[in-house]
Design a protein around this nucleic acid. Sequence first.
DNA 1: TAATATTAGTTTATCTAACAAACCAAAACG
DNA 2: CGTTTTGGTTTGTTAGATAAACTAATATTA
Lengths: 389, 389
Amino acid sequence: MVTGDSNYIKTMNRKLVLEDIIRSRSISRVDISKRTGLNKATVSSQVNELIDQSLVIEKPVENYAQPGRRPIILELDPMSTYSIGIDIDRSHIRIMLINLKGMTIYNNIHDFDIRHTDTLAELLPTLLEPVISQYNEVYRPNQLVGIGISLHGIVNAELELLYSPPQQLDLKPLLSELEERFEVPVHIDNNANMSVRAEQSFTAYETNLYSMTLSSGIGLGILLNNEVFHGFSGYAGEVGHMIIKQDGIECRCGNRGCFERYASDEVLTRSLADAGISLIEFPTYESLKADEKAKAIFEDYISFITVGLNNIINVFNPKKLVINSTIFSKYPELLDELKPGLTSSFIDYGDILISPLGTQSSALGAALVPLAKFLDINHFDLNAYHIAH
Amino acid sequence: MVTGDSNYIKTMNRKLVLEDIIRSRSISRVDISKRTGLNKATVSSQVNELIDQSLVIEKPVENYAQPGRRPIILELDPMSTYSIGIDIDRSHIRIMLINLKGMTIYNNIHDFDIRHTDTLAELLPTLLEPVISQYNEVYRPNQLVGIGISLHGIVNAELELLYSPPQQLDLKPLLSELEERFEVPVHIDNNANMSVRAEQSFTAYETNLYSMTLSSGIGLGILLNNEVFHGFSGYAGEVGHMIIKQDGIECRCGNRGCFERYASDEVLTRSLADAGISLIEFPTYESLKADEKAKAIFEDYISFITVGLNNIINVFNPKKLVINSTIFSKYPELLDELKPGLTSSFIDYGDILISPLGTQSSALGAALVPLAKFLDINHFDLNAYHIAH
DNA sequence: TAATATTAGTTTATCTAACAAACCAAAACG
DNA sequence: CGTTTTGGTTTGTTAGATAAACTAATATTA
């Protein structure tokens, strides 16, 4: 059992200090003391350890008009370490590298067929090897802190991937292959769960945050108390299989009327194709609404999305919820169409946002996991950096 | 901001010790040390403070066959304090008193009409006065630690009760009246939220637990990390207004197809009445199934409950979920009828239980809140006591 | 320009609570 | 009746936070 001793409070206060430096981007020792409530001496000793560990660097401040000794500005050292995030969707593998400040330093896509998932333990090292050896030279030698992998499917408690039940894949060989080859920890999770971490860090910092990903299926990443909520065996947030229409359309999961049979991008794309419509014809939402057939299809789509969102909001009463969808990114006006449907007297929410991260969110989130583990922090508020770059 | 210092670890370890004494029912200092990992000396000093505070008493152990000095058994002192829980439903007020060990020492029901909710600030003190003065004599003087009140409706962030929107009631006068009169803290929450606390303490101890209450409406009490999850403004868990049938029956909330329009006890009772059936005729589930009309109504009911449960399980992937319903208590076989419908390949759960606490759960949960606050502990595992009594 | 005010950060002494190890207490056993 | 065994206390040490005193550095001002 975790007990309280001097070591515990040391670690706890280290987290407070480091998290505050990350959140503030640039901050002096005294300001950390004021903001956290920790004594100046405590902050100093913690900061000096962080500097010894090469995580934080000191910078002189210029153009400082106040009287008194000038503060020494503290920042994360972006050249100290980097992390890798990999997103494997049904047709691509995206590999991203980010530095300690969360800035993307490499971002590349490879073609891949999801049906060959069992070849990943061979393929991934080949793709990673040149990238890692290149960046290990730029950064201090061997400063890769870990690899995060985002997978489209449920990662259950036994580390099996259920990508299209009953198909399943044992992920342990992939993990050990990568861990042995690159001598770093490898973390694996579902894409919706990886995404919500990225949304917290880059889009909207909230202790509790929800991110609904609409792609082939529909997943909800749930962040509670700065931690991804997995449920007891990894199945939490599979909202694509929430029933919104009893006795509705049959679904591969065995039930009828599942949310994703009505509101996934796949279903929308098929409806449009059946009507002989391609979205390339409609650069704006206005142009789309001018087309009667397209308008009707989108009205249906919105009505289904609204039902699903209503249910999610009903359960979680979210302060903020992020929608990650190529359709919503293309036509942000959809959000305004949808909101009037979310006015039941038993639901309430703060704000619904469209993700600015798009298809990169799950790889970004995957890259954040090893960084957070390495720094030993709970939350990772990089919004300040993101705005700046 | 909460920082780590000596006071913090003291409180933290106090919680560990006290929680372990509660969970174990009877335990020696050495065993606490072994189970928590705390040093023997630390446990001794913490325990001695708990004894000074009259929360814990020492008992000699008898019939101890081992060699060596006999352990001193530590237990909660049931005569040290008591707590009051009040449940206000649409037609009754239940008042319960429990002692430090969670044992019920008073349990009474008064008639009450929900339409007179605004008179509560006058009525409740009159009902409580004689009970409190009686028990203050039995216990050490003035050892009431607080009052918890369970209300059927949403308690929002502004401490307003939304019992049948748009009807709402400002709860602040009720709170201050009771706090001034009895000089103890008063805690207010929704009945589903109060219930899930009771289920954790008495039915099934889990760090994350879910309790679905089927009465006039349908509510889900959500316990995450030993804390009731309220969402950002108190609306979390209002699953009665989850849409399970798009364009379904109209609901008072403004939407159509809400779960509670199909699966609440109220709806079931009406369907039965319309068919000229009374459940008194059917003492057993077998007898009910022999009646064609009743059987058909219950098959419908089960199918709706299954859809709602499917969605809840889908989102939370619960280890344990408790159903609190008079119908399920009367016909526990309903659970077996329902489970085959919860087999989608995207959901998984540990166990679904029928609450043994019945209509007392929300008052019990309400009484637990002041106790937990008073003892300053996070969880309250009284299952051991409950089995014993 | 030198004294003063002001702010940043460090040093020093103190304190709290956990811990390890030595110790005392009390029982069974042979 | 000593030995063994286990429960619980006492003692000395340690880590880390804190308050307060101190040093450092810079703008202001007389």
